[in-house]
C-alpha cells in the first residue's frame, strides 16, 4: 500500500500550496491536482465508480473556477498585507480548536476499526441480496437506485435547487439597480 501513502502525502502538500500561494490561478491548478490525486486514491481503494465521477467533476470544477478568475482578477492582494487584529484573533482561535479537534480525533480513531477491516454489518446483507433482489450486477448502482433510492431523490432535489440559485443570481432582467 506504499502508493496510497505517497498519494495521500501529495494531496496534503498540494492542499497547502493551494491555500498559501499568491496567484489565484496557480491555487486553482493546485486544487485540481488535489482532485485528481483523490481520484487515483479512489482507484487504489477499489472504488471505480467514484473515480470516474471524481475525474469528470474535477475537470468541471477547475473550468468553473478558471472562468470566474479570468473574468475578475488573479492576484491575491490580501496575502502580503499586515495581519489585522481580527485575523490574529481568528488564527489563535483556529489553533486552539484545531488542537482540541486533533485530541478528540485521536481518541475516536482508537475506537474505530483498523484501516482495511471494516465491520460491514449492513453491507454484507446488501452484497448477499443485491443480485437476487434487484438483478443489477453493479452493487453501488443497486444501493443508490434501489435500496436507497429516496436518498438519491433528495440529492437530485439539492442539485435542482443549486441550479435554480445559480440561474436566478445570474439573470439579467428583472433586477433593480
Amino acid at each position: 500500500m506504499i502508493e496510497l501513502y505517497l498519494f495521500l502525502a501529495f494531496i496534503l502538500v498540494a492542499a497547502i500550496i493551494a491555500t498559501e500561494i499568491k496567484d489565484l490561478l496557480a491555487a486553482v491548478i493546485s486544487l485540481g491536482a488535489v482532485g485528481f490525486a483523490v481520484a487515483i486514491v479512489f482507484i487504489l481503494v477499489q472504488a471505480p465508480d467514484l473515480a470516474i465521477v471524481q475525474i469528470v467533476v474535477e475537470v468541471l470544477t477547475v473550468v468553473i473556477f478558471v472562468a470566474v478568475i479570468l473574468r475578475t482578477t488573479h492576484v491575491d492582494e490580501t496575502i502580503r498585507k499586515k495581519l489585522s487584529g481580527t485575523q490574529i484573533f481568528s488564527i489563535v482561535l483556529y489553533a486552539f480548536f484545531a488542537i482540541l479537534f486533533l485530541i478528540v480525533m485521536f481518541r475516536s480513531l482508537q475506537e474505530m476499526p483498523d484501516f482495511g477491516n471494516p465491520i460491514m454489518r449492513v453491507a454484507s446483507e446488501y452484497i448477499k441480496l443485491g443480485l437476487p433482489k434487484t438483478g443489477g450486477a453493479n452493487l453501488v448502482a443497486d444501493v443508490i437506485l434501489d435500496f436507497r433510492a429516496l436518498d438519491t431523490l433528495g440529492e437530485a432535489t439539492v442539485l435542482f435547487t443549486s441550479a435554480i440559485g445559480v440561474v436566478a443570481l445570474m439573470r439579467k432582467s428583472g433586477r433593480k439597480k
Binding site: 465508480d49 473515480a51 469528470v56 453493479n138
Partner: peptide, 13 residues
Amino acid sequence: GHLTPGGGFAGGV
C-alpha cells in the same frame, strides 16, 4: 450503469 462502473451521475456529467 447497472453492469459496470458508472451510472447516471457519471454519464450525465
